[in-house]
Amino acid sequence: MTGAPAVPAAYLALREDAQRVLEGWTAPDAGQERLRVELLAHCAEHPDALLKQGPPAHLTASALVLNRSLDKVLLTLHAKAGLWLQFGGHFEPGDESVLAAATREAREESGIVDLELHPELAHLDRHALRASGFGRCSEHLDLRYVGVTDDEAGYAVSEESLDVAWWPVDALPEASRNAIAPLAEAARRLLASSLLR
């Protein structure tokens, strides 16, 4: 597009990594496959697909943290959204990969500095941003990973959060249950299958 600003090389490399991740991922059901195809098409259409300053709909990376018995999730009360959600956010130029971005976000927002994520993608989501305070962002196309930590892990509340707390998987906060439950199910399925390998 003539006159469009050049996309920084770091974000072009991240877009290529996102495309590799999506192309190599086997979606568990038809809905996730549809999202996988949509996200790939979005990346193909928008060189700046991972830039916060890019198109109003852009890719993000996030992570759901579970305890070792896989019956609780560690969530953040997101300051802008006003909802209990998984950790995550926008890509930064220092991120070496989609997984690295999700790991950075999870560590920053949970305060668990040694948190490691499972290397495989767990879930995809596409959601409109209804709360104020997101600027020109109108939609997030989220690549979601999963991590595991001890119930006693020393977590902390970041500047982007109002609170951080453990929630039982079978008693998630009502306002965000529909958003978190499918991710928690996908995360537990991925982790359980990994343990069987």
Rank of each mutant, 00 (worst) to 15 (best):
I112N: 02
G88C: 06
S132D: 12
E23L: 14
A165P: 02
P182V: 09
L83V: 04
D71P: 00
V65R: 09
V148P: 00
A4T: 13
L99R: 10
T103G: 06
D151A: 15
A44N: 09
A131K: 06
R189D: 14
R68H: 11
L50P: 10
L77P: 00
T26N: 10
E45A: 15
D150F: 06
S62N: 12
A63Y: 05
L143Y: 07
H42K: 04
E109N: 01
I112C: 03
L39M: 15
V37G: 00
A63T: 03
L124H: 03
S62Q: 07
R20M: 05
V113T: 14
L39Y: 11
D114A: 12
L22T: 01
A184V: 12
H90G: 12
V7E: 11
L22V: 05
E139K: 08
D114I: 01
L59Y: 08
S194T: 15
A122G: 09
A106Q: 04
M1S: 15
D151R: 12
T103A: 14
R15S: 04
E96C: 04
W166Y: 08
S132Y: 07
A4E: 15
V37Q: 15
E45G: 11
F87P: 01
T26A: 14
I112D: 01
R126N: 11
V65A: 05
R189N: 10
A79L: 10
K72S: 13
R136Q: 14
S69F: 03
P182W: 08
R107T: 01
A101K: 08
G31N: 07
D170P: 00
S62I: 04
D170S: 02
G135V: 06
L75C: 08
A44E: 15
R189C: 06
P8V: 03
